[in-house]
Every structure is written in structure tokens, then in C-alpha cells.
């Protein structure tokens, strides 16, 4: 029933906050090894979609399949162990835990202490190693974002979900963050990323979806989306000639 190439498939998903319908029947898929981005304005439902996929929110209708299994009703903490990791919007690092403790929490589902992954994270995000004994709340915004990503890959996920990794960061930091994401994806980790910075996201991604008011309005390869005039006007800030 499910294509073995497909790691994540969302079918006709509906999500409501009380009487307000936030997601009105979206379908999308992510293949193994791909980087897929979801674009859209504020309030389009991007974060809601991600939170539903990772189990923090319950859908009112529709199905979510991950790694050939239906995870629609599986609680969030069980989904992590199946190989999905979600770095949430606003970073949400544990402020009064040290950087190292935050990373260890990322590996909570693993039985053994994983020094190898920790070493690799310190290699691609060296700032974290310098500050490993510091409380996460004392880090700068950029460093907290690095920590949030590092923490998310500590569980060695098959799918890494990133929600607005560049939000509120200086351009020079954004570059570093995207470089790290590229590095992570090059090791075979599948990435689903939501970004305000549509250009950077499409450069990184293989494919993309455009979400508007809870519905998917466009989808295609990154090149198709980058060259589409509608997308250019709405999300890439280019004016009609």
C-alpha cells in the first residue's frame, strides 16, 4: 500500500483548534533521503502541520504514515523512538539545563550513551562544544538554534523536522545554520523543513509545497517553484515586470 521509497506520507489531514479549522485536508509525502520544504505566510498552518506529524496535536481526520506504519494516533513520545525528530519553532531548548544535558535529552530514547553522534555534532556545530557546560538559557539566539538542531539529531533520526530554523537570526548565522542542515542531510537523514526564508529553503530542498490558509496550493521541485512567477511574487519578493 505504501511505496517503500516514501518515508513520510500525509493523507488528507484535517486539524482543528476547537471550532477553527487550521488544516483543511492536506496531502504530502517525503521520500527517503530527500529535503522537502513547506512554504507559506504566517498563519498558513505550517507549524500546525509539523506539530500534528510529530504527534503533539491530534488530527480530526486523515492519516499519517511513517516508515510504513500508521502513526496517526501514536503519542509524540513514542514517535521519536521510531526515528522522527522535531526541532520546534522558537527553539525550545531547556534553559536551565546545560548544553550537554540538552544534548543528552535529545538521545533520551537511545539505550546507550552515544559519544559518536555527540562528537559528530560538536564537529559540525563547534560552538556547542565550547559551551557545553553553560546553561542553554545563557546562549545567544543563534547558539540556541544550533543546540536545538543538535539536540534533534542526537536520537539518530531517519526524518528530521525543522520548524523555522532561521527565525530571528542574523544573516551570517542563518548561513551557518543552513550549512549544518546540508551537512546533516548529506549523511542520509531525510529533512522536512518549514522556513520563512523561502529562497534559502528552496536552494537547500529537492521539492517544496506551498501552504495557504490550511491548503496546499502549489507543489513541485525546488526549481519549478523558484521559477514560478506566482511563487516569486508571493514568497521571493520579486515584483511583476
Amino acid at each position: 500500500m505504501v511505496d517503500h521509497e516514501i518515508l513520510l506520507e500525509v493523507k488528507d489531514l484535517h486539524v482543528s483548534y476547537g471550532a477553527i479549522k487550521a488544516i483543511k485536508g492536506i496531502s504530502l509525502y517525503v521520500k527517503r533521503g530527500e529535503v522537502v520544504t513547506i512554504l507559506g505566510a504566517n498563519g498558513a498552518g505550517k507549524t500546525t502541520t509539523l506539530r500534528t506529524i510529530s504527534g503533539l496535536l491530534k488530527s480530526t481526520d486523515g492519516h499519517i504514515y511513517f516508515d510504513k506504519e500508521d502513526i496517526t494516533t501514536v503519542p509524540a513520545h513514542d514517535i521519536v523512538g521510531r526515528g522522527m525528530s522535531h526541532s520546534p519553532e522558537g527553539r525550545k531548548v531547556f534553559g536551565t539545563l546545560s548544553v550537554e544535558e540538552n544534548l543528552h535529552m535529545g538521545a533520551y530514547t537511545l539505550k546507550t550513551h552515544d559519544e559518536e553522534t555527540l562528537g559528530w555534532i560538536y564537529k559540525i556545530l563547534p560552538r556547542l562544544e565550547e559551551r557545553k557546560k553553560q546553561l542553554a538559557g545563557t546562549l545567544s539566539g543563534g547558539e540556541q538554534q544550533m543546540l536545538a538542531i543538535g539536540r534533534a539529531i542526537m536520537s539518530k533520526p531517519k526524518l528530521l523536522i525543522l520548524d523555522e530554523p532561521s527565525l530571528g537570526l542574523a544573516p551570517v548565522l542563518v548561513k551557518g545554520i543552513f550549512k549544518a542542515i546540508k551537512e546533516i542531510s548529506s549523511t542520509g537523514v531525510t529533512v522536512l523543513i518549514v522556513e520563512q526564508n523561502a529562497k534559502a529553503a528552496l536552494k537547500l530542498a529537492d521539492r517544496g509545497y506551498v501552504l495557504e490558509l490550511g491548503k496546499i496550493t502549489h507543489e513541485g521541485t525546488s526549481e519549478e517553484l523558484l521559477n514560478s512567477t506566482v511563487i516569486q511574487e508571493a514568497y521571493l519578493g520579486k515584483k511583476k515586470k
Binding site: H77, V80, G81, S87, F94, E101, H104, M105, T109
Partner: peptide, 24 residues
């Protein structure tokens, strides 16, 4: 301990703790 750290993590942010795989 790991459980102790998880308790502190849950105290800070329950949603983020769930995303670590912690059963709140």
C-alpha cells in the same frame, strides 16, 4: 541521572520534552 534530567526537562517545557521522546 537521566530520569532526573528528564524530570527537569519536563518541568521546563512539556511539549519540548515530548519531542525528546520523554513520556510526560
Amino acid at each position: 541521572t537521566k530520569i532526573g534530567t528528564a524530570i527537569r526537562a519536563v518541568a521546563i517545557d512539556q511539549d519540548a520534552a515530548k519531542l525528546m521522546g520523554i513520556n510526560v
